[in-house]
Amino acid sequence: MDVQRAKAIYASKDMISVHLDGEPVWIEHVDAENGMATVQVGSRPTNTHTVGVERLEEQES
């Protein structure tokens, strides 16, 4: 995924399925300048990771 798509998903009111290494995640923040995103893994709000946006994959609905 690229930074612009990650930002669009983050800003969207729609539920868009995104995965990191095969696991569903929620995008919580996008750092466009550094190409990074903070994501919540699964349903635990404390389980967050900051990763390169290129590692995120949008899943077809």
Rank of each mutant, 00 (worst) to 15 (best):
Val25Asn: 03
Val53Asn: 09
His19Asn: 08
Thr48Met: 13
Lys13Gln: 10
Thr46Arg: 15
Leu56Ser: 01
Gly42Glu: 06
Leu20Ser: 00
Ile16Trp: 03
Asp2Phe: 08
Glu28Ser: 08
Glu60Ser: 14
Ala37Lys: 11
Met1Arg: 09
Gln40Thr: 08
Met36Glu: 13
Ile27Ser: 04
Gln40Leu: 07
Thr46Gly: 07
Glu28Gln: 14
Met15Asn: 11
Val30Gln: 11
Asp2Ile: 03
His49Gly: 00
Ser43Cys: 06
Ser17Pro: 00
Val51Cys: 03
Gly42Phe: 04
Glu23Trp: 08
Asn34Ser: 14
His49Asn: 02
Lys7Asp: 04
Arg5Tyr: 01
Asp2Ser: 07
Leu20Ala: 02
Ser43Tyr: 13
Val18Asp: 01
Ser12Trp: 05
Arg5Glu: 13
Ala6Ile: 09
Val25Met: 09
Glu57Ile: 12
Glu33Ile: 04
Tyr10Glu: 00
Ala8Asn: 10
His19Trp: 01
Leu20Trp: 15
Val30Asn: 09
Glu57Ala: 12
Val39Met: 01
Val25Ala: 09
Ser17Tyr: 03
Gly22Phe: 03
Val53Met: 05
Ile9Phe: 02
Glu23Pro: 01
Ser61Phe: 08
Val41Gly: 13
Glu33Tyr: 04
Ala37Trp: 03
Ser43Glu: 13
Arg44Pro: 00
Leu56Met: 04
Gly35Glu: 07
Val18Thr: 10
Thr38Asn: 06
Thr46Cys: 07
Arg5Leu: 11
Ala8Asp: 15
Asn47Glu: 12
Gly22Pro: 05
Ala32Arg: 09
Gln40Ile: 06
Glu58Lys: 14
Ala32Asp: 13
Thr38Trp: 01
Tyr10Trp: 12
Asp2Val: 02
Asn34Ile: 00
Gly52Gln: 13
Ser12Leu: 05
Thr50Val: 12
Gly42Tyr: 03
Arg55Thr: 05
Asn34Ala: 15
Gln4Ala: 15
Trp26Glu: 13
Ala32Cys: 06
Glu57Asn: 08
Gln59Met: 13
Glu58Ser: 00
Ile9Val: 15
Arg55Glu: 06
Trp26Val: 06
Ala37Arg: 01
Ile9Lys: 01
Gly35Val: 08
Gln4Val: 05
Asp31Gln: 08
Val18Gln: 02
Thr48Asn: 09
Met15Pro: 01
Ala6His: 10
His49Glu: 14
Ser61Trp: 07
Met15Lys: 14
Tyr10Ser: 01
Thr50Leu: 10
Ser43His: 12
Gln4Met: 07
Arg55Gln: 12
Pro45Val: 10
Val51Trp: 11
His29Asn: 11
Asn47Pro: 02
Glu57Ser: 08
His29Tyr: 14
Pro45Gly: 04
Val25Gly: 02
Gln59Thr: 06
His19Met: 08
Glu54Leu: 08
Arg5Val: 05
Lys13Pro: 03
Val39Trp: 02
Glu23Asp: 13
Met1His: 11
Ile9Ala: 00
Lys7His: 04
Val30Thr: 05
Glu28Cys: 09
Gln4Phe: 06
His29Met: 10
Met15Asp: 12
Ala6Cys: 09
Asn34Arg: 14
Met36Pro: 01
Ala6Met: 08
Asn47Val: 02
Ala37Gly: 11
Val53Tyr: 09
Asp31Lys: 06
His49Tyr: 11
Lys7Leu: 15
Thr50Tyr: 03
Gly52Met: 09
Ser61Thr: 05
